[in-house]
């Protein structure tokens, strides 16, 4: 597969502060790549650099094999961007807004009409064509924002946190829409600080922190790089002081996080961890209300790599 984006050792400083620090990654044609990182980690800054909206201090960016500059109109014609903040004309109706932004790329009126209709269908705004933005709910507004960014059928799409503060219905609609765009051939870069979204959506995940890529791979690969393989949660009927020491001695146990009557027990790789624990508890006649096992999340990956939570 050929690279659609090649980011090489980008450094971007705001004054003395390094927002991007030797950032480097590639995006291949047809991928959905998730850029996952907490607020302030440099996701928007890196997107703005890739789009030549921001000048950077060092490094180079190639898109479709060409150096990206503010004058790369040929390249720009193949790119669609959905920014973090909704950017539409308050004065224009839903249809007119999409038509305007599409018109910056597509000059032919008939083709444009078709494209705008398709975009409206994709984000599910059929009933709202003649509404003004201020008459739309937050979720619908986000969908309009997306339609404005993709109506011209770009083959490379950047989405910067498109689901922040969006109701679940709109969120699903948005994620489904992105999958559809990808199926029809578009390469997608998706930034977010929600790990569930990248797990659900992305072929490959780049974890970014303090302007650096600290991990890169599929979700399975990423989870493979950490020691935790399983997490078991137990809620005891009554907690005794010696439980923690007893359980710590069990096989494969890495760590215990206790809160009130509940233990979250991290295990490293190994077989029958849950079964062993259940057997141990019944041998010791320890009563519990709930017990269940989970696989580690990307938050665990992030926690192990940086020592802090993805969401603060």
């Amino acid at each position: 597969m050929k690279n659609v984006i090649e980011v090489k050792k980008i450094t971007k400083k705001y004054g003395e502060f390094k927002a991007l620090d030797n950032l480097q990654f590639n995006v291949e044609e047809g991928e959905i790549v998730g850029l996952l990182g907490p607020n302030g980690s440099g996701k928007s800054t890196s997107i703005n650099c890739m789009l030549s909206l921001l000048k950077f201090d060092k490094g180079s960016i190639k898109i479709f094999d060409k150096e990206m500059t503010p004058e790369s109109y040929e390249t720009k014609s193949k790119i669609g961007v959905i920014f973090q903040d909704v950017a539409v004309f308050e004065e224009l109706k839903v249809y007119e807004n999409i038509d305007y932004f599409c018109g910056l790329y597509i000059k032919d009126k008939h083709v444009r009409e078709e494209y705008v209709e398709e975009a409206i269908k994709l984000v599910g705004l059929n009933e709202f064509k003649n509404h003004l933005p201020k008459q739309l709910s937050g979720g619908l507004l986000r969908r309009l924002n997306i339609a404005c960014g993709i109506a011209h059928k770009p083959s490379l799409i950047f989405l910067d946190e498109p689901t922040v503060a969006v109701d679940p219905q709109s969120r699903n609609n948005i994620l489904e829409g992105i999958k559809k765009l990808n199926k029809s051939g578009a390469t997608i870069i998706y930034t977010t600080h929600y790990m569930e979204e990248v797990e659900q959506l992305c072929d490959r995940i780049l974890i970014i922190d303090k302007g650096k890529i600290i991990a890169n791979g599929t979700k399975e690969e990423l989870k493979g790089i950490i020691d935790i393989a399983e997490k078991v949660t137990v809620e005891f009927e009554e907690l005794e002081k010696d439980y923690i020491d007893k359980i710590k001695k069990q096989r494969n146990v890495l760590d215990i996080d206790s809160k009130n009557n509940t233990f979250k027990i991290s295990y490293k790789k190994g077989k029958n961890n849950l079964v062993n624990l259940i057997n141990f508890l019944s041998d010791e006649k320890i009563k519990y209300n709930k017990i269940y096992s989970e696989l580690p999340t990307l938050n665990d990956v992030f926690l192990e790599l940086t020592g802090k939570e993805l969401r603060d």
Partner: peptide, 10 residues
């Protein structure tokens, strides 16, 4: 915001 959109267009 609008300027950004105009700016990234072709």
């Amino acid at each position: 915001k609008i300027k950004r959109r105009n700016y990234i267009s072709s």
